[in-house]
Design a protein around this nucleic acid. Structure first.
Lengths: 245, 245
DNA sequence: GAGTGGTCTAGACCACCAA
DNA sequence: TGGTGGTCTAGACCACTCA
């Protein structure tokens, strides 16, 4: 039950405690991606607080893109399985601004062991089993991104070529429907590099050609890292979009 | 005065109207960067609404980094003139994570005319007078960024070499104190490019070396574009950090 | 202690959606 | 028409800061 005591040494606002309880229900799978959660009034009764306090907790989760409010309908668990947000984390857009047909070209999928770096960022032991996927993303038929993806094997048991190909571009949508794992945010580290021989041949370029190197770590509920990837992007006719606030 | 009428064709929430009024006071200079604005209670009386409504308007401006709330003290107009936010828009960090000494090396400052592109993004006529600044940013003594900056001449009348050198890295801090212009957000378009002869020589590289090209448009109150810049960054030991939410 | 922002409540009413 | 989220109010009380 919630703790309304003030002045206690570990004072936390009520709405913050409600937020934790809601998050726990999300982690525990009581409400799954796409589901509608109970109404504010119901939740207020369940947690024995006012509707306004539940509201504030939900507001916070909504600005984090974890829940989605729809006036007149209800509040829903966010998902990558909708056309409008399927590629929420893809920041690469055409210089012309035109929409493009995105396709997935499978390269490989093998079991491996975490090295020091991937072990560290995924918070697993170096040497723990991982699954490594390589793929090409084509924009309107032209290969523009070479992706190298590493995930811990345990929560993604059964990930294989077929599932990657079915994903049709959005791994995150596939993670949700196949493994019940939802990514809520990611961090990217970007550099300019010269294309290696392997990447250059996959993208049809000369070795040494300037590419955008994008290293990404993705996090699920509770800020637990669940995927590491390294992408090499050809940015001759495209750019990476970033908003500074 | 505010308009509480519901059901009107152009319905806007009260707090949204208050937000506009607050923004107008910021644009008009009633409260300048660093100033404390009136208390919530005072503002509620001034606008004849409840404190909670003023609160919601201020909350919104605070999440946009336009105002800053300090419990027990008051609400202040955000500024770039503080050590902790002087480089708020600088996303380049060392691979090692170490803090670095940032310095400004002046290259040039000339009057010019807006071309089609800068005219368009700055929303001024192509051919209108602009001021163009070139500078080098050095990290711990090593030149890493070549910046080419264009601003409209009118609002920045008097911008010259001395002012750029005084800025010591943060143009935004200088814009505020010298011209009363505060930037609240920016958009960046990032690509990987091969270094041109001019940029390569400034950064001490071979022509063709891979560099991060960062094109930025910065906006002041009311989302008016006020600066365009193109930066070329050496990312051998640094990366551009981006958060996806 | 006085003044500021922050939390929490209870209740009234509006806007939107679906059946 | 009923249910959902969205707005607005009024008031009580807590937490933080500074003189």
């Amino acid at each position: 039950m919630v703790d309304k005591s003030f002045g206690s040494p570990s004072y936390r606002p009520l709405y913050d405690q409600i937020k934790v309880l809601l998050t726990q229900s999300l982690i525990g799978g009581e409400w799954r991606p796409g589901d509608m959660i109970p109404s504010e009034i119901e939740l207020a009764q369940r947690y024995k607080v006012s509707q306004g306090t539940v509201r504030k907790a939900i507001d916070s989760l909504a600005t984090e893109n974890i829940l989605i409010r729809r006036q007149g309908k209800g509040t829903f668990v966010a998902t990558h399985n909708q056309d409008d947000v399927r590629l929420r984390f893809l920041r690469l857009t055409a210089e012309s601004g035109q929409k493009e047909l995105l396709q997935n070209e499978f390269l490989s999928c093998v079991k491996s062991k975490a090295n020091v770096h991937t072990g560290k960022v995924l918070e697993i032991k170096a040497g723990a089993t991982t699954i490594e996927v390589k793929r090409l993303l084509t924009f309107s038929g032209r290969p523009l991104i070479y992706d190298y993806i590493v995930v811990p094997a345990a929560p993604f048991k059964g990930l294989n070529r077929a599932k990657v190909e079915e994903s049709n571009g959005s791994m995150y949508s596939m993670y949700e429907s196949q493994f019940g794992i939802r990514m809520i945010r990611a961090e990217e580290r970007i550099k300019a590099v010269a294309a290696s021989a392997e990447v250059a041949s996959s993208l049809g370029l000369k070795e040494g050609y300037p590419l955008l190197s994008v290293e990404r770590v993705s996090f699920t509920y509770g800020d637990r890292p669940m995927e590491w990837r390294l992408g090499f992007c050809l940015t001759d006719d495209h750019h990476y979009m970033s908003e500074l606030e």
